[in-house]
């Protein structure tokens, strides 16, 4: 909650670092963190969702292979897809949140070309016209 506090417009790097440390300290850390972050990224409060995306990207950079393995599952990718889809939360989330989610998934297709599920998820979004460019 402290790492994604919507009452604070600036990123709080100290709390973000503490979040990453806890992810790394626990065997179940990556899967638990991703469930929490998915929930926050789906928040209708734009600042909370944007903070959660920053935390997610920081974890991708700092939490290593176990985190990458968990985030490359459809279980988590589906939660990001829901933010973009008008059938799910697409009408609640702001354009800025949606464009950052799209950019994050696209960047993973580049940085993790071996993760087939990320490629599948992104191709599906393009095929359905949800990602246009």
């Amino acid at each position: 909650d402290k790492a994604t506090d919507p009452g604070v417009p600036e990123e709080n790097w100290e709390f973000i670092q503490q979040f990453c440390d806890r992810v790394n300290a626990d065997t179940e850390g990556p899967s638990l963190a991703l469930r929490l972050l998915a929930h926050k990224i789906q928040s209708p409060q734009e600042v909370e969702a944007l903070h959660a995306l920053t935390v997610l990207e920081t974890c991708v950079n700092n939490c290593g292979e176990r985190f990458h393995h968990a985030m490359a599952k459809f279980r988590f990718l589906n939660e990001l897809i829901k933010v973009l889809s008008p059938k799910y939360y697409g009408t609640w989330s702001s354009e800025q949140v949606k464009s950052r989610v799209t950019a994050v998934v696209f960047s993973w297709t580049v940085w993790f070309p071996q993760e087939v599920k990320i490629q599948d998820a992104y191709q599906m979004l393009k095929k359905q016209g949800i990602v246009k460019e």
């Binding site: 599952k73 459809f74 279980r75 589906n78 897809i81 059938k87 799910y88 599948d120 599906m124 949800i130």
Partner: peptide, 15 residues
């Protein structure tokens, strides 16, 4: 502590 590693997954959501 014994930890159960769940390696299962869901299907890709159809939007």
């Amino acid at each position: 502590t014994v930890s159960f590693h769940d390696d299962s997954d869901e299907d890709l959501l159809n939007v």
